[in-house]
Design a protein around this nucleic acid. Structure first.
Length: 561
RNA sequence: UGCCCUAUGGUGUAACGGUAACACAGAGGCCUCUGGAGCCUUGGUUCUGGGUUCGAAUCCUAGUAGGGCAGCCA
């Protein structure tokens, strides 16, 4: 697990509120929490929240809990609990011994409910589902009080206990708070606290058949844990008065809730439901498919925890709706990997080059720099011989006017090696290039300074007989429109990018990569950042995933003309 | 025809009543044995109209626009 860097996050309105609360002694400590529901995998939007909550805890010398809000047994599963824990850890955060579950508080919550009933602030409603829905009214229309609203306290107590004891079928009764059916805030129109659900819970098993609603459980859970600042997304702003009402009626510790705008990224989707659909309908290989915006997907794609944390800091926190450009995320990973990734030679789509004036059996070992951004990473030896592979698109038979690479009669430098000149093109019967016959200039060996010949381009290469095969997966954005789920007419599936994954079976990589470990990240010179696939790669069957390309200014020049 | 929230360059975020800053993207240029990296240059009548003030992106007010709220989901 990597360390969280010491940089503090940029100023934001939440820090201002906390500063103020500390100054006024509203609280004398900072305690936050990250409260996911274990019903899906975490995505980059959750990463923003995790970085925020844990970042605040760290920055103020406080604490941050990990708490699962597992109040709906029909949707939750331990698979999700495990993946969420792994993701939070991988991002570099530590909840220490403070791993909690809302289900830990089911007993307390039950007692709290009884307290409310005794105060006449909650009642058992035996109206059918539809009745309750109709009586709730609409945003512009006040609700109507239930005929069970004035049920005697003793009867409520007895019914509620029977609900708990499993004496009723699902849906027969609910426990409701007694607040205000005419409130302009719908959340205050006698919200449901408990519903009957004869379902097995992933932690409490069959102990309960009544389960608290999120609204009833969430605020009290924060209170029980002594949370000072409950940070959540904007849609809970209207729920805050309800949470305040509960806390006040119960007379328990009062956390301060602060809402912020969730992350939106273009060219992807963030809805858990839709991500689940991609997985279930097999549009992707799983939650950790490298094209998914999930944390596990980004991890398998080759993103580093540091890059995600830096991204979270850079995009900031505010209350207005936002759509972050995906290039911002890509910038963060390039920035990190540029500093850290070892450079390596890999030819994705090879064409053969034969150096006609290079001795048949000669092999030279050339020194290559592992990372020009970090010379402490040293150098390595690169075998060079008469037969090489170069990238197919580094050769143009009829070169574009600004093309600086190899073309007939033209010279180019082979990185860390010699300058070569294309003398002849050998084609097969179909007219496809079989190989290029080139000459090399012995006086131009890299590092010798024996020639002052200048050449416009430098290309990467690999020695044919020393290279090893690799499978390379080129990943691109999953959708080809900026907002795939904003179209009300068309399903978002329609906007999936058919070229989001292109697999190349026979790429040639330098021999150093033979021992590359799963998850290890490299820069393939002039191409991009790649990592060894953590699931399917082995030393005799290398599989690389493209994390992100290098910035490609040539592509822009090419597109312009 | 209700309540709540929001409004700063293309996208984000900052500026805390003293005259708009930073990052990404875009466009130019320099440099380069990665067309990478790095460096330089280049964008805003701060949603609109009033008001308060010597002074407003910041405060007040009225509009306008966008988002949220009618699960026994979270």
């Amino acid at each position: 697990m990597s360390e969280v860097n010491e940089n503090t996050m940029p100023p934001n309105f939440i820090k201002e509120i906390i500063d103020e609360d500390l100054k006024t002694q509203k609280y004398n400590r900072v305690h936050t929490r990250f409260p996911p529901e274990p019903n899906g995998y975490l995505h980059i939007g959750h990463a923003k929240s995790i970085c925020l909550n844990f970042g605040l805890g760290k920055e103020y010398g406080g604490l941050t809990n990990l708490r699962f809000d597992d109040t709906n047994p029909t949707k939750e599963d331990v698979e999700y609990v495990d993946s969420i824990k792994e993701d939070v850890k991988w991002l570099g955060f530590d909840w220490e011994d403070r791993l909690y579950f809302a289900s830990d508080y089911f007993d307390t919550l039950y007692e709290y409910a009884i307290k409310l009933i005794k105060k006449g602030k909650a009642y058992v409603d035996s109206s059918p589902f539809e009745q309750i829905k109709v009586e709730r009214g609409a945003p512009t229309k006040p609700g109507v009080e239930s005929k069970y609203r004035k049920r005697p306290i003793q009867e409520n107590l007895e019914l509620f206990e029977k609900m708990k004891n499993g004496e009723f079928e699902d849906g027969v009764h609910v426990l409701r708070a007694n607040i205000d059916m005419a409130s302009p805030n719908m959340n205050l129109r006698d919200p449901i606290l408990y519903r009957i659900r004869h379902a097995e819970h992933h932690r409490t098993g069959n102990k309960w058949c009544i389960y608290p609603m999120y609204d009833w459980a969430h605020g009290q859970s924060d209170s029980i844990e002594g949370i000072t600042h409950s940070i959540c997304t904007l849609e809970f702003e209207n729920h805050r008065p309800l949470y305040d009402w509960f806390i006040n009626e119960l007379e328990i510790h009062h956390p301060r809730q602060i809402e912020f705008a969730r992350l939106n990224l273009n060219y992807t989707i963030m809805s858990k439901r839709k991500l689940l659909r991609l997985v279930e309908e097999k549009h992707v290989s799983g939650w950790d498919d490298p094209r998914m915006p999930t944390i596990s997907g980004l991890r398998r794609r080759g993103y580093t925890p540091e890059s995600i944390r830096n991204f979270a800091d850079r995009i900031g926190v505010a209350k207005r709706d936002n759509v972050i450009d995906i290039s911002q995320l890509e910038y963060s990973i390039r920035e990190d990997l540029n500093a850290k990734a070892m450079r390596v030679m890999a030819v994705l789509t090879p064409i053969k080059v034969e150096l006609i004036n290079y001795p048949e059996s000669q092999v030279e070992l050339l020194e290559a720099i592992n990372n020009p951004e970090d010379i402490s990473m040293g150098t390595r030896q690169l075998p060079f011989s008469r037969e090489l592979y170069i990238e197919a698109n580094d050769f143009q038979e009829v070169p574009h006017k600004k093309f600086h690479r190899l073309s007939p009669g033209n010279e180019v430098r082979l990185r860390y090696a010699y300058i070569i000149k294309c003398e002849e093109i050998i084609k097969n019967q179909d007219g496809n290039i079989e190989k290029l016959l080139c000459s090399y200039d012995i006086d131009t060996k890299s590092g010798t300074g024996t020639s002052d010949k200048k050449v416009k381009g430098t290309i990467h290469w690999v020695s044919a007989k020393h290279s090893i095969n690799a499978k390379v997966r080129l990943y691109d954005r999953l959708f080809n429109v900026p907002a795939p789920d904003s179209d009300k007419e068309n399903d978002f599936i329609k906007y999936m990018n058919p070229d989001s994954l292109i697999t190349i079976e026979n790429s040639k990589v330098e021999p150093y990569l033979k021992n590359a470990k799963p998850g290890e990240r490299f820069q393939f010179e002039r191409l991009g950042y790649y990592c060894v696939d953590s699931k399917e790669s082995s030393s005799d069957n290398l599989v690389f995933n493209r994390t992100v390309t290098l910035k490609d200014s040539w592509a822009k020049i090419e597109n312009k003309s």
